[in-house]
């Protein structure tokens, strides 16, 4: 690990002042950043420790019915907050299907959003990677790429964004509050992560010094609480990134779907909102035929980036399953367990 200066600012304004300098990087828990620094992938010359900044570790209920989650709230604390799990069950389910219990105890909301889009070639200093070294090329294109992107990728980069948390959030129109050199602004979460295009090294819409201070869920996001699921398929039962995942949230009234919110994980360099699928379901009867049509619409623009054509079919099946389970009703206990070969509960 390259050496660095360590600073611990006392206020957001001080953090932004030092965080705007060249080579500076913000540190929250560091579960992703320290890993990347140990591998020599990230090489900040200064770490700006955010963990003591006041007021960023709160969950606030807003007068308009929305919810404001401070950027330093820990993943486990948010997921186990009873009110949160009740109102946003798919988000709690996604949080608890990510990483391990130890990492969730440490990792923060802001850090989860800012974790890097990555693949094994990004981690391996001996491989060409445009994201790590702009213009170097991409060894994943002709490498082991069965887990890589099938939507929104370019010849420049085919890696996926690994967050589970962000998938239902993007479907629920979450908003990111940002403080920067020119003051406070906000951005839909959907606009935070960028697709690779010609510049895969530019991962987010943030400018130098920009600091995520909170995440907001609008009031209407609670309207899906009765029919919401996050289903994640992994290569082992627990503690692995998604091969593909799907967040499905439905508002069902008088036997038909009034509104659907759908997003996919593990398929692109960002959490993938599937608005085409949402449109298919608006006003439709909640049945498998409709789910299949929605899933086809969600993946209509997909193409394999390597040995991963199977993900296009798999993502459709997982989305159909997520919609079926969401329509059947949010389970009493959130989060439901991921399906395990040892489980005595069928379809858990």
């Amino acid at each position: 690990m390259m050496n660095f200066d360590y600073v611990r600012p006392a206020s957001v304004a001080d953090a932004i002042a030092v965080g705007s300098e060249k080579g500076a990087s913000y540190l929250a828990s560091g579960t992703n950043l320290l890993d990347l620094m140990k591998g020599g992938v990230s090489r900040p010359s200064r770490l700006v420790d955010l963990t003591r900044l006041p007021g960023l570790d709160r969950i606030e209920h807003l007068a308009d019915g929305g919810l404001r989650i401070g950027a330093l709230v820990r993943n486990a604390d948010l997921a186990h907050d009873a009110g949160f799990a009740r109102n946003y069950p798919a988000v709690a389910e996604a949080l608890l299907s990510g990483a391990s219990a130890q990492l969730r105890n440490a990792a923060t909301v802001g850090g989860n959003l800012m974790q890097r889009t990555r693949c094994a070639y990004f981690y391996d200093a001996g491989s060409a990677c445009n994201r790590r070294w702009p213009g170097a090329g991409c060894d994943a294109l002709n490498g082991e790429n069965r887990l890589h992107a099938v939507l929104g990728w370019s010849e420049g980069c085919i890696a996926t964004h690994p967050s589970d948390f962000c998938v239902p959030l993007v479907a629920l129109d979450a908003i990111v509050e940002i403080e920067g050199k020119s003051g406070r602004r906000e951005l839909p979460l959907e606009a935070l992560h960028r697709l690779p295009g010609e510049t895969p090294e530019r991962e987010t819409a943030l400018e130098r010094g920009d600091l995520i201070v909170a995440l907001r869920l609008p009031a209407e996001a609670q309207g899906f609480a009765k029919h919401a699921r996050y289903i994640k398929v992994r290569e082992r039962t627990s503690y692995a990134f998604a091969v593909v995942s799907a967040a499905a949230s439905l508002r069902i009234e008088d036997g038909s779907i009034r509104e659907a919110r759908i997003a996919l994980g593990g398929v692109a360099a960002k959490p993938w909102r599937a608005r085409e699928a949402e449109q298919v379901l608006a006003g439709a009867a909640p049945d498998v035929a409709a789910y299949r049509e929605a899933a086809r619409a969600a993946l209509a623009g997909a193409k394999p980036s390597g040995d991963n054509a199977f993900k296009i079919e798999l993502a459709q099946r997982i989305l159909v399953r997520a919609l079926t389970l969401a329509a059947a009703g949010t389970p009493d206990r959130i989060p439901a367990l991921p399906g395990s070969p040892f489980s005595s509960v069928a379809g858990a």
């Binding site: 140990k38 963990t51 130890q102 990492l103 105890n105 440490a106």
Partner: peptide, 27 residues
């Protein structure tokens, strides 16, 4: 592993289990 993948370094910090390999002491 020293990279947060194996859990051999698990300790309690303020009562919570975390991976001590991915925690800067100074922080």
């Amino acid at each position: 592993c020293d990279r947060g993948q194996c859990g051999a370094c698990t300790i309690l910090v303020d009562g919570r289990r975390i991976n001590s390999c991915l925690a800067l002491a100074v922080s």
